[in-house]
């Protein structure tokens, strides 16, 4: 079975935010929920790099480990999903997540942050694939249609790669060997406990 991962090639990412709006478009994500975002390090200085970040679908996911109601589950493709009907909005996954992926519909409303929302790797939720119920809670299920996450598919410079970890790592390695250097894959060591060595 494939082991799905995200890889953002920081040497290609130009902070165009296509991944962000593609996600909004595909899943009709409301204002204030940022399943994916682009962060720029060293802004305005030599060495500036932008990196697109969302849920990395970690190996041994911290969110799942700390969830008090055990609402997370991992698919056969190693995509980390959760069941919003079980989520109590406690915020533990946000404390544990190294990538700030969990999002809550309400920011500071006392006591109720609402059901946690995060990147689904365009794989929907626990309901039947591509039903209205699934769409309302989780958005589209492209994986069930045999497609990959739209953020990566629409990435303007093909910096954001999604797919089987082995394949995207080899694409990245090929690029690195062509250009002669590589900045590495942000988040990989934290998420997958391994780097991409080229």
């Amino acid at each position: 079975m494939a082991r799905m991962k995200f890889l953002c090639d920081a040497d290609r990412c130009i902070e165009c935010n296509a991944c962000v709006t593609a996600c909004k478009n595909e899943h009709e994500v409301p204002w204030g929920i940022n399943r994916r975002r682009v962060v720029t390090l060293n802004d305005g200085k030599p060495g500036e790099r932008s990196i697109s970040m969302a849920c990395m679908h970690c190996t041994d996911a911290p969110c799942a480990a700390v969830c008090p109601v055990n609402c997370f589950y991992t698919t056969a493709d190693a995509i980390v999903l959760h069941d919003k009907d079980l989520c109590i909005g406690c915020g533990y996954c946000f404390y544990a997540c190294p990538f700030g992926a969990p999002q809550y519909p309400r920011v500071g409303n006392f006591g109720g942050r609402g059901k946690m929302d995060k990147c689904t790797y365009c794989a929907g939720g626990p309901q039947a694939d591509n039903t209205a119920a699934e769409y309302i809670q989780y958005g589209a299920n492209r994986i069930a249609e045999g497609k990959l996450p739209l953020c990566a598919e629409m990435c303007s410079t093909k910096a954001l790669l999604a797919g089987d970890g082995e394949i995207i790592a080899s694409i990245y390695r090929e690029r690195v060997s062509k250009r002669g250097y590589g900045g590495g894959a942000w988040g990989w060591r934290t998420a997958y406990r391994e780097g991409v060595q080229a």
């Binding site: 991944c19 962000v20 593609a22 478009n25």
Partner: peptide, 8 residues
């Protein structure tokens, strides 16, 4: 591919 505008 698209940019933020094209993707929305």
């Amino acid at each position: 591919t698209h940019c933020a505008k094209g993707a929305s």
